[in-house]
Computed example of a mutant assay.
Amino acid sequence: MRQSAITLGLLAGWLGSAAANGVVAFEVVGDAIPAPLTTAPADAARGRAIVASRQTGLCLLCHRGPFPEVRFQGNLAPDLGGAGARWSAAQLRLRLVDGRRLDPQSIMPAYHRVDGLVDVAAAWQGRPLLSAQQIEDVVAYLVTLKE
């Protein structure tokens, strides 16, 4: 009984801290986060803009994809073309939120996690890289990439 109370207390403290920082609680099921992080509708156009942005998502530093207007795309990570055919929205959501749950050696940043990170710039300490809405927008875009 005492262990449960301690665990619940720690969990409540983490959830309170995470919520204060904009991190939304989520449940991982297998290799996915089945439930959207927000109730607001996702916007694939906003998601595409985040993926292509060199200031927000920075996705194209490592990935390449169907972005003819963006020069110098990465080749360190999987091509984003066909992402919607390879992974479900729920699987993409986990990969964005915290891909290291699937591969601890991944170079993919945790875009919606703040706990347990090291070497975080002062401006980003305690803040997720992408908001819950931004995660959902990126997921909405990536699922459209079927080829």
Rank of each mutant, 00 (worst) to 15 (best):
M1C: 10
V28E: 10
L60W: 00
R71Q: 12
N21K: 03
T38M: 07
G47F: 07
E147P: 07
L61G: 09
L96H: 10
A44F: 01
G57V: 04
D43T: 12
L8T: 05
E27N: 13
A132K: 04
Q125N: 02
V29P: 09
G47D: 12
D103E: 15
S53N: 10
A40T: 15
D137T: 09
L11K: 14
L8G: 05
W14D: 13
G116E: 05
A42P: 08
R86W: 01
R101A: 13
L8K: 10
G22L: 10
R95W: 10
D137R: 04
G99W: 06
R46F: 00
A123E: 12
L10F: 14
P66R: 06
V139T: 08
R2N: 12
R86T: 04
G81M: 00
P78M: 11
L80Q: 07
G81N: 13
A18W: 03
S131R: 03
V138F: 09
H112E: 12
P109F: 04
P104E: 12
R64T: 11
P68K: 02
D43K: 12
T144Y: 08
A83F: 08
L76M: 13
M1S: 14
A19L: 08
V143M: 03
S53L: 11
A49Q: 13
R64P: 00
L117D: 06
C62R: 01
P34E: 08
G82D: 07
I50C: 03
L145G: 05
S131T: 15
L129P: 02
A12G: 09
D43I: 13
S106P: 03
R127P: 06
P78F: 06
A85Q: 12
D79W: 02
R101L: 15
G16W: 11
A5S: 08
D98V: 02
A18Q: 11
S4P: 00
A110T: 08
F67W: 05
F67N: 01
V51S: 08
G126S: 10
R64A: 11
F67C: 03
W124R: 11
F26K: 11
A83C: 04
L129M: 14
T144L: 11
P128T: 10
T39E: 15
S106K: 00
N21V: 00
A49E: 14
L60G: 00
A5D: 13
L80R: 01
G13W: 09
A49L: 04
A44D: 07
L80M: 10
V97D: 05
V139W: 06
W124Q: 13
Q133I: 09
V23W: 02
S17L: 15
N21A: 15
T56S: 09
P34R: 05
W14R: 14
V138N: 07
L37E: 09
D137A: 10
S17A: 15
R93V: 00
A122P: 01
L92T: 02
A42Y: 03
A40Y: 03
A25I: 01
G84M: 06
N75T: 07
G81R: 14
A25C: 02
E147I: 01
G74N: 10
A44P: 14
C59V: 04
G65H: 00
L8Y: 04
R101T: 12
R95G: 15
